[in-house]
Design a protein around this nucleic acid. Sequence first.
DNA 1: AGTTCAAGGAATGTATACATAGATGGTTGT
DNA 2: ACAACCATCTATGTATACATTCCTTGAACT
Lengths: 211, 211
Amino acid sequence: MRASERAYATLRSDIINWRLTPGTVLGEVELSARLGVSRTPIREALAKLTAEGLSEPQSGRGVVVSEISLDHLDELFELRTALECRAAELAAQRCDPEIFANLHHQLLNAGELITAEDPSRADYYQLAGDLDAAVDAAVGNHYLTQALKNLRVHLVRVRRLAKDNPVRLRDAAREHAAIALAIANRNPVVASAATTVHLDNSLRHLLSTTS
Amino acid sequence: MRASERAYATLRSDIINWRLTPGTVLGEVELSARLGVSRTPIREALAKLTAEGLSEPQSGRGVVVSEISLDHLDELFELRTALECRAAELAAQRCDPEIFANLHHQLLNAGELITAEDPSRADYYQLAGDLDAAVDAAVGNHYLTQALKNLRVHLVRVRRLAKDNPVRLRDAAREHAAIALAIANRNPVVASAATTVHLDNSLRHLLSTTS
DNA sequence: AGTTCAAGGAATGTATACATAGATGGTTGT
DNA sequence: ACAACCATCTATGTATACATTCCTTGAACT
């Protein structure tokens, strides 16, 4: 693997998992020493991170890990709602119903995945990711998928802000199931509405647990 | 100005204005010779262009100017509709009505700007850009604005695909005026609907003049 | 004659040296 | 004592040399 890719992957993971907190200065020399590569691949990695919005230039000189404060959460969710509602609509019009019927069934039983033994909720988030991927595939729109991908990077960071309690996760799973069902039924209006409801619940939960 | 910024601006302009056509190979050595800077700033510029979607990696080695074919026009407009309709809605809820009333008035008279003396339609596109900027400002959502900005880069390229005949431009100006009016009236539903109509007309016009 | 493998070359990936600009701290003058 | 200015230092911007990988071309074998 290329050194620049390793540096990028490492830094990206560090930022997303809050090992590098917002505001941290990303100095080229320090990073090149820490990651054991020269400054050139570091620069490449920082450029990609900045393009992605995970870091940003700091007053003309140097880059810092970008802020992800609650002040911007509502803005993030406004974009998210616009994109995901449209995606759900289009998926409902174009999907293979069997795939989403299957996802619906899995999501209905997702409560069992949220156990005390798996504090990282890996299984649950895997299933939610499967739904996202299925929607992307059904929509078949490169530009829309790309915009959603850019957005999800920030959403993963936000997730760490909130304490994800099991009650909310089970509710969220039911909401996801409702979305999958609407898409399987090829009902764009309901799919969009279910997405709106789900995102509103998610946002309010986030705001209530973090403030 | 930094060399990397100059290289980026030059290449970006060359791609948008079709001096570099889709599929053109962007070799680092060739570009560094042509632009008179070393490969390092060229790499920086290419990374930014690729992040923006104006160029893309070519089978693991080298980057090429990305395709902007008609096959993807409908996809581009699906994303555009999702973003601009939402932006129009939010702008209608949050705007200062005077600003959009003023734009409405200007757009109603925009027919006079489309004259034979200005084949580049600079004045008209300036006015359309003013409306976009006013919507962005009224919405006040960094993420949504950023997503729209990414999108508009591709739209400028598409514009060059079509022969913009004066009749269509005058119609488009009236449609823009309708959007501005709906926002000035603080009517989100109409603003979104007017945007949908406008974008559908634009897409159909593009498809009819280029095929 | 076609296909495959190898060798060479060309372009990208990486490292490092050098240039430059911005920041910081100290000193001096008021 | 405070402020302003200058010098030095540090970090980024740029250039270039070196390494590596992939592609192309040619030759040989099937």
